[in-house]
Design a protein around this nucleic acid. Structure first.
Ligand SMILES: [Mn+2]
Ligand SMILES: [Mn+2]
Ligand SMILES: [Mn+2]
Ligand SMILES: [Mn+2]
Lengths: 224, 224
DNA sequence: AATTAATTTTAGTCTTGTCTAAAAAAATAT
DNA sequence: ATATTTTTTTAGACAAGACTAAAATTAATT
């Protein structure tokens, strides 16, 4: 039997856990102090302080100068915050007329609301969605995340066709660009030409030809 | 032209404003340091510190030893937080299967979410409700609160009939007691007997006679 | 292998919001 | 009018979370 403190993690601790979780799934290595600092717009020294505290709380393992790795508890906690973030994003888009470029900042706040009943009822109210408005999978209540096979648009060869299934960048600017060019989740995209000089592409979306920079093509996920 | 800082008030400042607003409408006098401390479960010295800061921010006027009074800006700010609190309570009850005794703690968290679009869309989504699940009026977006004529149950005379329109106490214990005795907003209540010794009442609700202590009768609002 | 460069940690400071203990002012009682 | 009690404010301390500057460690070059 163990004691379970209510309001287990502070807002700041939750943000660190989430950042480390995301960095860990990207790199599959120990997550470095600097990487965390950059993601959270803070300083490395602040990160060192915080990861020591989080190590005491058993959500990650930390060895001086060696970066950190989440424990099972840490992963579950982070996944739960991401679950809340993505469910709220679905709610905002489906029920409150938000567009996909408006939801992130509000979800950053809502993800910290503490109420198991709230999040489970919200899940039911939304009909147990599997993906958020950006195509990212929603973890289940045990913290399991469905792994999706996805590749970046710029990996398609000339002539190949794919379906847009997600974005790597959820910034408002990027999403508005996609809106402007009629690119949305579920839409078909065919690569017509690849320009070797600047790695840009000419693609076809709904009959229209558009030019896509390398940076854009590097942030759009496609399923063949 | 004036500069408007984003995220104008901290969570703590918002809680102080809300507490002062509620204490001010009750007492119509300057609100005392001790009263604020008691409402927020904190110490008078902490309150003194905070009200000095809030006075600097022009949301209240403060003279040493004389208590505080909200400015127009302070009242509007507080009313907006209360608006959010009550709209969220409606959402939880109407859409997410919460009962009226479960909503308050979650709304205490949700009321601090900053997004004008969120709260206006929520208002529309709920069909512009005028009252929250406890019968309290929901301020409009300009901070105006409808004044409701209401009196406590124990002001009814023997034989008089009224309709339950609100509660003075939103604690889970009180609300569960009402549920248990089939008392809900909109229900008719007739006072059959008043016991002078302990100020208790015998009332009739939906054909059933029940005994009501003074404390209960002092927390139930009635419209004749 | 020895330097240099980059990363990470430590030490010390700051702000916010809280606390306790003591001093000051106001309210109440004698 | 004075003394006592209550309320309020000040002074000093603390924890969380952040920062800067300096020291320590690791990584990369020569
Ligand atoms: Mn997001
Ligand atoms: Mn998303
Ligand atoms: Mn409430
Ligand atoms: Mn309420």
């Amino acid at each position: 039997m163990y004691i379970c403190q209510k309001n287990m993690f502070t807002l700041s601790e939750e943000n660190y856990l989430k950042a480390i979780f995301h960095l860990a799934t990207d790199s599959k290595k120990g997550v470095s102090t600097n990487a965390i600092a950059e993601k959270l717009n803070t300083k490395a020294s602040s990160v060192t302080d915080m990861i020591q505290k989080l190590a005491d709380k058993k959500v990650l393992v930390y060895q001086k100068y060696q970066g950190v790795e989440l424990t099972e508890l840490g992963r579950k906690t982070a996944a739960n915050i991401i679950r809340k973030h993505r469910l709220w994003e679905v709610f905002l888009v489906e029920k409150l007329n938000f567009s996909w470029d408006e939801v992130h900042d509000v979800a950053e706040q809502l993800e910290h609301i503490k109420s198991p009943k709230l999040i489970n009822e919200l899940d039911a109210f939304l009909n147990y969605p599997k993906k958020d408005p950006h195509g990212d999978p929603i973890p289940d209540k045990n913290g399991n995340i469905q792994v999706v096979e996805k590749r970046l648009l710029h990996h398609l060869k000339e002539g190949e066709l794919g379906v847009c299934i997600g974005v790597n960048d959820s910034s408002s600017n990027f999403l508005k660009f996609l809106d402007k060019n009629n690119i949305a989740l579920g839409k078909q995209i065919r690569v017509l030409e690849k320009e070797p000089f600047d790695d840009s592409l000419i693609v076809e979306v709904e009959g229209k030809k558009i030019s896509i920079s390398h940076k854009i093509a590097n942030n759009l996920y496609i399923e063949k």
